[in-house]
């Protein structure tokens, strides 16, 4: 997980894309929540994948709508995680 593009790839893999929707369209500024792309299950899967596959443990208190509004918002959170959070 080196860039917001990597994060977009991860998020995209947890979304059930509909017909006519292009997973490649997901950019750092895509309004994930407004577009209804993430449900509670997808959010839990993203949190769990960041933890298990990338060693990035998001504190419960940071799993809030403000941090999932766009991939960029989540990336900013990840970049600012205290050193202890990365296993």
């Amino acid at each position: 997980m080196n860039s917001v593009e990597d994060l977009c790839t991860l998020i995209s893999s947890k979304i059930t894309w509909g017909r006519g929707e292009d997973p490649q369209q997901l950019t750092a500024d895509t309004p994930l929540l407004e577009m209804g792309l993430l449900d509670s299950l997808a959010i839990m899967e993203i949190v769990s994948a960041l933890d298990k596959e990338h060693g990035l443990a998001l504190p419960d208190g940071e799993v809030v709508a403000a941090n999932f509004r766009t991939p960029k918002a989540l990336w900013t959170l990840i970049e600012n995680l205290p050193a202890g959070a990365a296993k």
Partner: peptide, 12 residues
Amino acid sequence: DLLRAFPRDVVG
């Protein structure tokens, strides 16, 4: 609606 998926936000 946007908050429903975030228990922390719901409590807040």
